[in-house]
Design a protein around this nucleic acid. Sequence first.
DNA 1: GTCGCCGTTTGACATATATCAAATAATTAT
DNA 2: ATAATTATTTGATATATGTCAAACGGCGAC
Lengths: 190, 190
Amino acid sequence: MKYQEAIIEELLTTAFQDETLRNAYYEAAQEKMFKKGDLLLEQGQICRYCYTLLSGAVRGFYLKDGREITTSFCFASDVVMSLESATRLTPSPESFEVLEDSLVEVVSVEKLTQLRAQFPVLEKVWTLSMEAYAIWLEERLASLQFATAKERYELLLERYPQIVRNVQLSHIASYLGITLETLSRIRAKG
Amino acid sequence: MKYQEAIIEELLTTAFQDETLRNAYYEAAQEKMFKKGDLLLEQGQICRYCYTLLSGAVRGFYLKDGREITTSFCFASDVVMSLESATRLTPSPESFEVLEDSLVEVVSVEKLTQLRAQFPVLEKVWTLSMEAYAIWLEERLASLQFATAKERYELLLERYPQIVRNVQLSHIASYLGITLETLSRIRAKG
DNA sequence: GTCGCCGTTTGACATATATCAAATAATTAT
DNA sequence: ATAATTATTTGATATATGTCAAACGGCGAC
């Protein structure tokens, strides 16, 4: 999972002016440093924590026929979590790997559920995040469904240049649904 | 948009035992019959209504380079709406076309927002629907990202046989991200 | 029933992308 | 710094899928 939006950020900023909420949240949350290569969550495990990236980068991926398919990239202020696993308590379909040393805020999914129940504004943030995430997925789906490899790469470059700058080709390639050789050739030609 | 789940259905059933809610809802909703070929929403317009299918079938699609790309199929009890357009009041990226004569329950997005504010259980249904929709999109994304055309067709056949039974090939093909000739050949070989 | 219209199938060929292999280039460890 | 590892580029070839065109089939209008 990932995705943040201006409106949501604002709502959160306002919400955190409430001292009761702030205290409850910081009691539940814990800052942790993760190292490059660490796994925040492994495919098949149940996702029990919600990770908010304060700095660094994380990649979501799953294994198919022995090779890794990248599903998402997360950077500062993005949320890392398997939505499916966290809400249904089923095995996660994907793993999350730390791409560079990252500072992360960790809250357990259970505690998060309590906080949402206790503070309606957090429930509202959750709902808006779900909407934004679904809309983001719709857009990504459309780009995979009928754009050529070149179009998909150019769209990524336009919308998410920080991915192209920071992440190795093989991960970008599988994110775009192509091989790294093809991606390399697309970049060479321009 | 589409997607319904057992848990959500149950919650709705319970909610409708509340007479106040039931009255408020039925005052806001209106049943309408649509004919094959009707457009519930046209690409570029703002989505002002939420349509719940009571019977029949609807297809979502958008135009790309002059050809139609199918994004979804909806059947009885599915909800038809452009999530992006309805929540952000922006032009809809997709159209919705009625595939066969359909009975539809229509509520305005504005009224729906009021009802959600008035009845927390409806807000809960909305949130759960967003989660379910996002998870459904994640799954569909994974299937488009790295499955072959044959695998995608077989997955569709397994998970949503009613689509394959009821819908013409050209729509299924663009839904799978392939041409109808390729789909025809996949079916011929088995 | 016959005609005409769609939707589907089939064929020949073009093209994008994958695969396998090797050569460079860039990072990391020693 | 040098070696060792890892990432990227490039080349030759294979394959899946697309494109264009024609034939076939079912089904409603008349």
